[in-house]
Computed example of a mutant assay.
Amino acid sequence: MSPSPHFSFIVNGLVLTSPASFATPSVIGLLCLNGTLRTSVGSKIISVAVTPNGYADAVNGDRFVMPEERQMSFSSLLDIIERKVRSSGVYYVQKQCSNLTDEMPELTGDVQTHIPWMSEALGKQPDAVNFWLGEESAVTSMHKDHYENLYCVISGRKEFVLLPPTDRPFIPYELYQPATYRQKQDGEFEIVDEDSPKVPWIPLDPLNPDFERYPSYRLAKPLHCTVEAGEMLYLPSLWFHHVRQSHGCIAVNFWYDMEYDIKYNYFQLMESLTSAVGTL
């Protein structure tokens, strides 16, 4: 087992630890874009999100568009990531249903299935352990999760924009018709509407905010954080986050279900007040 983590800094509830305590020393050698990774799980069929622009689960015009979910072998994905095969889409392993343990259990010999000190602190095991691998163009639009999130980068880097729940009055939400990308035989993508209720989502891009349309966002206080290989980010539940990555970045995150306690009640109050008066 690797040594206990050293806390390099703590700010506003966000913790970066180094060295990582989520993997054995051999994990960097195992989870590489060639060699052992291709050998150990290359033939496995996994779920891959495919989009025309890298934005899965994001606003596109007047739609909230989800990716096309494609089943393919790990080796086929690696051929695309390594640019041995050309593709008109952007590919990202991002299925958030404990895909590490469900689709790639072979890797759990080197990647822990929980973080012992976090499991002890919270008195529970993680609800999901998710594996992430994709192209540089794959971007996670700004959102929040109802989980205590330990985000661990194994190779490459992740770049986060982080905003606390107290910034909710400055963050716009709008309702959108849900839809899904679908790639046609000619390689072009179409947007197909889903037969389901409208979805509330954040239309703002924190990297290029439209202050004319969303002037209240000027009052927000985003934090910018880069998580390098071997580092771990503690992202508290209900924090807003936007994520970019280096090409071929490999990461694993651990989702622990949040407690619906006074913190959640406070956030619900913030939501209700914001709905009543609008963004400030």
Rank of each mutant, 00 (worst) to 15 (best):
S76W: 03
R83Y: 06
M142Q: 10
P200N: 13
R86F: 01
D193E: 15
L77Q: 02
M72N: 02
E194C: 09
L150C: 10
P169Q: 05
G109D: 12
K144D: 14
S87L: 01
D195C: 03
W201I: 06
K144Y: 07
E106A: 06
I80G: 14
P206T: 11
I80L: 11
R157I: 00
L100H: 02
A179W: 05
H146I: 04
A121T: 06
F131S: 07
H143S: 05
V199G: 09
I202H: 08
H114N: 13
I191T: 12
S87P: 04
Y173V: 03
Q183A: 03
L204C: 08
S119G: 05
A138I: 01
E194A: 14
P203F: 05
M142R: 09
L100Q: 07
D127I: 00
Y91D: 09
V161M: 04
T108N: 06
L122H: 06
P200H: 08
L207F: 11
L162G: 11
V139Y: 08
P164L: 08
P165G: 15
D79R: 09
D167G: 09
E148T: 12
T101Y: 01
Q112Y: 02
S87T: 08
C152I: 00
H143K: 03
L133M: 13
A138D: 07
G156D: 02
I80H: 11
V129P: 00
Y181F: 04
K124S: 08
S73H: 09
L204Y: 06
R83V: 07
D205N: 10
L107E: 05
E190G: 14
D210T: 02
E103N: 06
I154W: 05
P178K: 03
M118H: 05
R182M: 13
V161Q: 04
Y151E: 04
G156I: 00
I202A: 13
T166C: 14
P172R: 14
R168S: 14
F160Y: 14
P164E: 15
D205K: 01
I81S: 10
Y91C: 04
Y147D: 06
M104C: 02
V153D: 05
G109Q: 11
I81W: 01
Y92R: 02
L204I: 03
R182P: 07
E190Q: 10
P126A: 03
I81D: 12
D79T: 02
P164M: 10
P209C: 13
K84G: 07
G134N: 02
G89N: 11
V192Q: 13
L207M: 15
T101S: 07
E148R: 11
P105R: 07
K184T: 13
C97G: 10
Y92G: 05
Q185K: 11
W132E: 10
K84V: 01
E82N: 11
S88Y: 06
I154A: 14
L163W: 01
